[in-house]
Write a protein that binds this DNA or RNA. Structure first.
Lengths: 219, 219
DNA sequence: CCAGCGAAGATTGTGTGCAACTTAAGATCG
DNA sequence: CGATCTTAAGTTGCACACAATCTTCGCTGG
């Protein structure tokens, strides 16, 4: 059997990312321990690790909560992504083999199909595909320092259930960016790829900030 | 009394940064527990947190070791710093009050005095001053996302006991950079400050990479 | 002599009990 | 009636014990 703390980390991360625990929700240790079928010890370790990832916040003697983001913090996260992810994309270009391009192309195409308005549209299916796309790109860059620095930042938009907040034009742009990044990668042009990634992130930033502002005022 | 795990994190971080545990050294839990006067539980938590900071590496069922850096990883860390720290510096400029400029000026001047060749030179004294200087700049930027992303990277050079590896010309440049950054900050010019910070990091990178190469070949 | 195997020792992973702290409700006093 | 103190319930922090895993050393066989 795999390690209990390992399972706890994965399970809890999925629960949070999937929205079972909304932002700000309290994460009691005994509650999680029962739910995950382990004792409090691995739960504590899982919370500590997710805290390092930025998914939960731990207040001493007061327990853990799912991280909640102010508009300002959300903008800050996108600034960080804008600083790092284009660089990683550029690094990935010369390292990509043909097969990597094929895999990314497949992902980008599937996202376009699933994201296109109509009866087949499934915005929830976009989330894992998007994670996979960006994850593969980061892996190709083969730059652990930047990858870990980025890791804490990428979860924030996901927690906000992002694709439902995209307006049609922004969503179309976002999906087109993926396709264009693959094209730039296949053309072996890191500057092109990085530029599209920059645009991609700024587009996402605009969507998320608008949504967060709206949610904040609406509440 | 303050929390045991908190003390353990701080104490262990200082021990590693101070060089009591060389890179690659094994960190047995019972050994640390006895040394720090706590039980294994807070030690494990401390190791987990320092692992998130990048100071130690944990292998499942095989314990923790002080992170050791290959030349390639070291270069990667400096790439990350080059991507983030100039931005943070630029952000810090408009937020700095006169008192902040004074404090940074004081630090920069003390570093110049302590770093100047002669009987008063004390390269070990530079380490905490340098940490404080960069730390204050990061704090001024008031950008938690970037700050935490950077946190893991800044330790690496310190672990390598850096200032002893500087040749006189590079050291002089490095100390001059600090002074110039303060000047740019006082002039309210973020572009200037960011540019000097970029140069500062590239200068450090050249020194560290050369030293790491030398150490690797010498061993 | 070397490779592979096996058992003992050591170390990490997990469960559980108790102490310390936080928090919220109720009582007491102004 | 409102504010503050008290108290009790619940939760986290820590220590310790046991289980699982890894490592090392010795042994056997080729």
């Amino acid at each position: 059997m795999t390690r209990a703390s390992e399972r706890a980390v994965g399970a809890l991360r999925e629960l949070i990312l999937h929205g079972d625990f909304p932002a700000g929700a309290r994460l009691g240790e005994v509650e999680l321990a029962e739910r995950l079928g382990v004792s409090r010890t691995p739960v504590r370790e899982a919370l500590a690790r997710l805290s390092a990832e930025g998914l939960v916040e731990i207040a001493p003697n007061r327990g853990a909560r799912v991280t909640s983001w102010t508009v300002g913090e959300l903008e800050a996260v996108f600034e960080l992504r804008a600083a790092l992810e284009p660089r990683l994309t550029a690094l990935a270009v010369p390292r990509a083999a043909t097969a990597d391009g094929d895999a990314l192309d497949d992902l980008a195409e599937r996202m376009v199909r699933v994201g296109r308005p109509g009866p087949d549209q499934d915005l929830d299916a976009l989330v894992p595909l998007n994670r996979e796309f960006h994850g593969r790109l980061v892996a190709l860059a083969d730059h652990p320092a930047m990858a870990t620095a980025l890791a804490g930042a990428v979860h924030a938009p996901i927690v906000l259930r992002n694709f439902h907040t995209y307006d049609p034009a922004s969503l179309r742009r976002s999906l087109a960016h993926h396709v264009e990044i693959v094209a730039a990668l296949r053309a072996g042009d890191p500057t092109w790829a990085a530029a599209v990634m920059t645009a991609h992130i700024h587009n996402a930033r605009a969507v998320m900030v608008r949504a967060a502002r709206h949610a904040q005022e609406g509440a």
